[in-house]
Structures are given as C-alpha cells and as structure tokens.
Design a protein around this nucleic acid. Structure first.
Lengths: 260, 260
DNA sequence: ACCGTTGTTTCACTGGACGAAACGAAATTC
DNA sequence: GAATTTCGTTTCGTCCAGTGAAACAACGGT
C-alpha cells in the first residue's frame, strides 16, 4: 500500500530467476515444463534461467537425472548468511543450551512483514518432541508471535487486528478486543504463556529479544506437549526463557533495564 | 579443459547477479562501488542487480545503513537445500552422535571438481576443539580428502597427482609416488589416519561413504588435537568412524559388502 | 502406430538492460 | 571551511541480450 516497492531498478531476468529458486525450494525434482507452468514463464525462458542457475551451482539436476533441486551453492550461501547475521550467530548456542536444560524444543522467530518467521531452532532427541521448521511462517496474532504484536506501534497493531485473524484451534483468540487486552499483559511481563493457540495440546513460553528499549527484534520460545509442563514449573521455566532472551539482547548491544 | 561449460543458454544478468551474491557472501558490508569494482561490473549495473537481490530478500542492507549482506531469503534457501539433499539430511544426526560419543569434531566432505568441500559438521562444546567450517575447500591430496583420490579412476587420479600438490606442513606428502602408494592402503582399509598433513598437531580419522560399490560420495572424519588421541585408541575410533560411514551409506541405499 | 508429453534448439524481433555521464550528499583532505 | 574525492543514486539514448513462439527429437503410455 504505502510502500509500493521501488520497481524502478529491478532487473527482470534476475527477479524471475529468484522466483524459480523459490519454486524449486518449495518442491524438488520438478521438470522444466512444470516449473515454467508454475512460475508463469515461457518454457524457453525457464529453461535458460534454470541452465544458468545450474551452471552456478545454485541448482543441481536431481539424482534421477530429470528435474531440478537446490544445489551446493545454495547450501553455502545459507551458511554464510547465518554467520553474517548477528542475531542468529548469537542465538544458536543459547537456543541449544536452553533447550538442553529444559529438554524441549526451542525456537527463535523474527517478524517479516505481516508474519513471523522461524529463523533458528533446537530440538531435543526424545521421541516425542515439537517439530520446528526454519522458514515456517505464522501470523502475528497467535502463539509466540504475539510478542511482536505487543511491542508495536498502535497504528500498525490496529491495522493487523482489524484484518482477518485466522483460527487454528478452538483456543485461538480471534476477537480483536480480547487480543488487545492480552497484549497489555504481554508487554509488561518478562515472559508469556500460550496454550493450544496454534496446535492443540501444545504449550509455549515466550520472551522478547530487544535491540533497544521497546524495539523488539525477535521472540524466543520453548514449545512442548502441554502435559509435560506441570503448572508449578511454568514460572521457573518462564524465568529461564526470559534470562536466555536477555542474554541475546545483551549480546546484541542492548542492556535491559530489568536485568540484575 | 574438456568441459568448457555450455555457455549457450546462460542469462548474463543472472550470472552476474550470482557473482554479486558470492562477493557479498565472501565479505559483508561492502558498498555499491566496492562491489562493482570487485565483480568488474559497472557501478550502475551492480546497483540495479543489488536492488533486485535486496527486493527479493537474498540480500539486505547492513545494520549501519551502508553496505549489503546476505538476507533472510538466503538463509531459507540454505535450509531448504540441506533438507533436499539426502546425504546431508541423513549425515547430520550421525555426525552429531559420533562426535558426542568421541567428544571431538566430526565433518562430512564431498568432492567438488578438483577439491573437496565441507558440507556438514559437528563440534563438541569443549574449549579446545578443531574448528570446522561448512563451505571450506581443501585439495584432494592431503588429509581426509585422500579418500576421494583413493576411490577414483586411474586416469583422473593421475591428472591430479601430476598437477601441483600444495604443501601445508612438513608432513604433507607432495611426492606423487609416495602418495600413490598410500592410496592403495586407503582403498583396502575400512578407515585411515592422517597426522598433521594439513595442520600441525592435528590428527584425523576418515572413512568413505559409498553410493554403490567403489563409488564414493563423501568422506566422514573426526579431527582432534593429536595429543588427545592415544595410539591404543586409534583402532577403536577408526571402527566407530567406519561404522558411522557405513550407516550413512546404507541409508543412501547402499548395503556395504563388508557390513555384518 | 498413435498420441501427448517431455526437454532442447532455432530464429527474428524488440524492449529492457546496458554504460557513460551527471547528480547531490557525505566523507576526506588540505 | 573550502576544496576535493568518493559515495550512492538518477537520467538517458543506444543496441544487443534476452525474449516468445514455434519447430525439434526423444520418450512413455495406450
């Protein structure tokens, strides 16, 4: 709406090529024709772009000979990216330590436009565990993502609250007024708890990561089957999550006023 | 030489854009002018390509406002890539398990042209540990990479042996005849040991991962400070590495004839 | 032998990407 | 603090790179 992305300096072929990358990332082993169909390019164009991407190693022919999948260069770029991103480089060991201590899945989400995005995770080895997926998106009005909704300009928040609020479970709060009330508490507390808002029987405990006072950059959370988290441990776990989030904030250069 | 890569269907803008990606991956926070200088493109062209890459999230402006670094999309592509690659998806838990059991760094390398490439790793938490870097390249004639040299067409091997063989340490073997002799043993044994061929005071134990009899797809190794690996443990450790490598081979669909 | 696919190749056209050069802003130099 | 360099951004006219359509050979299924 406001930001109708400056398309003035966009090189079209590159833009299309990136679309193909995402197509292949979304589903592997598609052939030229199918990829062309999905991306809306002509078969010839898709073919040329794919050839180029393969030549540079971003894509590779899949083992069966037909079809394309992501290549080694994509893998390397990803690793280089995670080392260039302070947040992720710093958060990864914290995620692991926290997860190991509690024995449950931990996850770091950031905001991306109207959604939140999992950018790092750690999973315990146990047979039954919450599965986190790096790259998975969630709306901002349910579960851990509410952290972003809580620490947000009033105007922006209202824009989202007035939009459609998807329901995941019976417990998902989709009434804007109820949501707004809950956010107040989230803003004040060091951590907050969500029960079954996205998946039945899952509980998550979330704490915000700040770059400067009030400016949230990420949400750190643990997620577990609800029956593995007895009521009396929640406060203790919340403290642990909050401490971990504060450690990340501090490493990013922000000294929390609430830190002792 | 032989394979002068079919450049017929290469889309130039895309090819150049990928070069920029690698430039930024190699060093973050460069500005337009510097990037243009390094890649050999005109400033205007680099600017347009960078804009496009930013628009699609493969790059992002660095926090200081000036300069570019890899973006979220690059991160996501990397994760998608590692999930699409059977070898890496399968190897990762094995690397961790083996590493934890032994308490040292484990690493998976594959061959890429005339070099080998680290594609996955696990590092122990201890203060002193071998640092492995995903994406780092090594020549094929030293350390764990010799696994590839050992399981290779005679013709290809001779081509490499007759080329320049870089020396890393006093112990690096650069005499083709000595090397050739050692390869024979590597081919027969289930694992092999390298001492200080790339770094002084480091020892590595390596076993090959096969896709089909004789066709090597990767080299699995542990690396440690030499003084932490007493002579009498080597055989035992070698067996563990070999077992782990065979597990990966098996999961890739290859049942080793030597497996019991 | 027939279809409907696939992936690859050709070709003439044209509009989009190109380089050069100009722009103001910021950082350096003197 | 004026002069100078370097930066990122913008404009513009030219031309060839990238394009779409259509033909191609090679499959695989019926």
């Amino acid at each position: 709406m406001t930001d109708q992305a400056d398309t003035r300096y966009t090189v079209d072929s590159v833009d299309r090529a990136i679309s193909l990358l995402h197509t292949v990332a979304g589903e592997a082993d598609l052939g030229v024709s199918e990829i062309a169909r999905r991306s809306g390019d002509s078969k010839a164009r898709a073919f040329r772009l794919l050839q180029t991407l393969v030549k540079r190693g971003l894509l590779a022919r899949s083992s069966d000979g037909k079809g394309y999948r992501l290549g080694l260069a994509a893998l390397m770029l990803g690793h280089a990216a995670s080392e260039q991103m302070d947040l992720i480089r710093i958060a990864n060991p914290v995620l692991e330590e926290l997860g190991q201590e509690i024995g449950e899945t931990t996850q770091l989400r950031i905001r991306d436009d109207q959604e939140s995005l999992c950018v790092a995770k750690w999973e315990p080895k146990r047979d039954l565990r919450v599965n986190a997926i790096v790259g998975r998106r969630r709306p901002l009005h349910a579960g851990s993502s509410k952290a972003f909704l809580a620490h947000m300009d009033d105007e922006e928040r209202e824009a989202i609250l007035s939009g459609p609020l998807k329901r995941f479970t019976k417990k998902t709060v989709t009434d804007p007024r109820l949501l707004r009330g809950g956010l107040e508490q989230i803003r004040k507390a060091k951590f907050f708890v969500s029960r079954g808002e996205i998946n039945d029987d899952l509980i998550s405990i979330t704490a915000p990561v700040f770059a400067s006072p009030g400016k949230i950059v990420a949400a750190l959370n643990i997620a577990a089957p609800e029956n593995r988290v007895p009521e009396e441990r929640i406060c203790e776990l919340g403290e642990m999550v909050a401490k971990a989030a504060q450690r990340i904030s501090a490493a990013l250069g922000f000294r929390s006023p609430a830190m002792k």
